[in-house]
Design a protein around this nucleic acid. Structure first.
Length: 258
DNA sequence: ATGACTGGTTGGACCAGA
């Protein structure tokens, strides 16, 4: 089973790119982020025509997450994280697909740092960690997939010195990620590539993609019950270089049947 | 080295992204 995560940066504005990627790579499950569309403007028709069942959590202008499943309907198990009644942003959706619990998440960017947005990010990550602990306690196979907006280590950024003060690379944010690994979550891409620089995002500015000036901020975290089934992982880099592409590349894992 | 890119909202410049 192939499970992918893709920050599409506008599901309607880049629908043609999304459909092309679905057709080229045929993931069994696709977690999407940054839909930038309210629920009623999610392109359900074209996605169903492409062979995918879908659930989504939309929002006007910003954020928005979805889970697509090829040839079946994802069974929704949660939308939104507990712990903050004030939080109405669409950043988390979760479903059962093919015997695996799959979460599609879009963590807050957090810039500028310091500031209220950074505080919201830290709080959101703490709520994510808490929910993750509850998922781990069930012993079910789970994957937390999405745009974490976290650069975990120096190996995950083209020039670490230039990102020291950024909300994506702040020590407290990296610590939040490290704590989730301590809880038992397994970073699939880093497991597959222990020493290599593997990026998932390249800015639009200054030909970042052509220069390979990238970041690794899109992650798939596997529960210990799922991690032994990891067969392969990678980034669909080539689609990032196509016309009108998202600034993220899709990240995928291949999981053996359970 | 904080870049001049991008979508969305809206019918202009902004906001937000990372």
């Amino acid at each position: 089973m192939r499970i992918a995560t893709y920050n599409v940066n506008g599901v309607n504005g880049r629908l043609a790119n999304l459909l092309e990627w679905l057709g080229d790579t045929r993931p069994d499950v696709a977690c999407l982020q940054e839909l930038k569309a309210p629920a009623e403007r999610f392109p359900e028709g074209p996605i169903r025509e492409a062979g995918y069942g879908a659930i989504w959590h939309g929002q006007k202008s910003w954020n928005g997450v979805a889970i697509l499943a090829r040839g079946c309907e994802p069974i929704e198990t949660r939308r939104g994280l507990a712990g903050d009644p004030q939080d109405v942003q669409s950043r988390y959706i979760e479903a059962a697909v093919g015997g695996v619990i799959v979460a599609s998440l879009y963590a807050p960017n957090g810039n500028p740092q310091p500031g209220p947005k950074f505080g919201f990010k830290l709080n959101w990550l703490e709520r994510l960690r808490r929910h993750g602990q509850a998922l781990l306690a069930t012993g079910q196979p789970v994957v937390l997939a999405g745009d974490f907006n976290i650069i975990p280590t120096d190996l995950d950024v083209y020039v670490p010195e230039r990102w020291r003060d950024d909300a994506l690379f702040h020590p407290r944010v990296r610590e939040a990620y490290a704590q989730m690994l301590d809880d038992g979550w397994v970073d699939a891409l880093r497991t597959r590539y222990p020493d290599q620089r593997v990026y998932t995002f390249w800015k639009y500015l200054r030909n970042a993609y052509q220069r390979d000036a990238g970041l690794r901020i899109d992650h798939l975290l596997l529960s210990p019950s799922l991690a032994p089934r990891l067969r392969d992982a990678g980034v669909d880099r080539e689609h990032r270089g196509r016309p009108h592409a998202s600034d993220h590349g899709a990240v995928w894992i291949e999981i053996a049947d359970g």
